[in-house]
């Protein structure tokens, strides 16, 4: 439970951070340390150097004009407590309630949870459901990656070794229905299965656009194409549609299996929570614009 030897670097600017990452092969960004440090203590990760981005100006903060912008090093606790986020992007607040515990959220960062790409993490799925876009800093500039394109597999994303996640943009989505649900053994544990849903209704309450983002079921957070297709054209809160969407939610998705949870369990429980989330979405107070 003691990490292997590593160097520690604390750049003062983004440019220095990118340079440090490039100059130190096998180095890693250190944000809140809530996942990286335990992995290092168990020697599951042995980075040559840590590039601590905690003191870089401008990487932390929440701003909401039309859309929401959250800096990568903003603490999860700060986003959870933010009144604007609660009012306009309540799905994020709901997801964050399930991310660890007060102590881990006080240190863990918003961007760290996304960049870490733990398949059972809540925030990545919420980002998929919200059509978020990620701004990535790299040598010589930035690039923007849609949430749907960002996650590749267990702990892997499109980020190259010398890139870092700078901030997250979430469009204004007031007026859409949403819900968040997960099954966890204990409150604050990683989920056995989970879902973030967002439904855009027309004036008659018919779904015109659907997001059903699943987590903890596969090697990465995934949108269920089958469930989303099925829901478009149905009424928000329609019980039959909700049940049907739950049943097909994992069609075409390779469901994960491990020493503790079978794929069969995940499939059954996912059907149940997707249905429940879709029903709950009809009654949850919508986010404001």
């Amino acid at each position: 439970m003691k990490p292997a030897q590593f160097d520690y670097l604390r750049p003062g600017s983004l440019a220095e951070a990118i340079e440090a990452l490039g100059a130190n092969p096998d180095s890693k960004v250190l944000a809140g340390g809530q996942s990286l440090i335990p992995m290092m203590n168990m020697r599951l990760a042995r980075p040559s150097a840590l590039v601590d981005i905690g003191r870089i100006d401008g990487l932390a903060g929440i701003s909401a004009n039309g859309s929401l912008r959250v800096g990568a090093t903003t603490r999860q606790a700060e986003v959870l407590a933010d009144a604007t986020v609660q009012r306009r992007w309540p799905l994020i607040t709901a997801a964050l309630r399930h991310v660890g515990h007060p102590a881990t959220r006080a240190r863990g960062t918003f961007g760290g949870s996304i960049a870490h790409a733990e398949p059972a993490a809540e925030l990545p799925a919420a980002m998929l459901a919200l059509d978020a876009a990620f701004t990535v800093h790299r040598p010589g500039g930035t690039r923007t990656v849609a949430a749907t394109d960002f996650f590749l597999g267990h702990y892997t994303t499109v980020l190259a070794e010398d890139e870092l996640l700078g901030h997250v943009d979430v469009p204004a989505l007031g007026g859409s229905h949403w819900a968040f649900a997960e099954v966890a053994r204990r409150h604050g544990d990683y989920a056995l299965t989970g879902v973030a849903v967002r439904l855009t209704p027309d004036a008659d309450g018919v779904v015109t656009d659907a997001r059903v983002a699943l987590f903890a079921v596969s090697s990465r957070p995934v949108r269920s194409a089958a469930a989303e297709r099925l829901l478009v054209g149905t009424r928000v809160g329609d019980a039959e549609a909700a049940t049907a969407a739950g049943k097909v939610a994992l069609d075409d998705i390779e469901v994960a299996e491990d020493s503790f949870v079978s794929a069969t369990y995940r499939t059954e429980a996912t059907a149940a929570i997707v249905r429940r989330a879709l029903l709950e979405a009809a009654t949850n107070p919508k986010g404001e614009n």
């Binding site: 168990m42 053994r185 204990r186 409150h187 604050g188 990683y190 020493s259 503790f260």
Partner: peptide, 28 residues
């Protein structure tokens, strides 16, 4: 409900951290 020290069929031990060996917290 929670605590389980699990060995795989080959004798590998898979409950070696408090991520997998769960004991109740105040919420349980």
């Amino acid at each position: 409900l929670l605590e389980d020290l699990v060995y795989e069929d080959n004798g590998e031990f898979v409950s070696g951290s408090l991520l997998h060996y769960l004991y109740p917290s105040t919420t349980e």
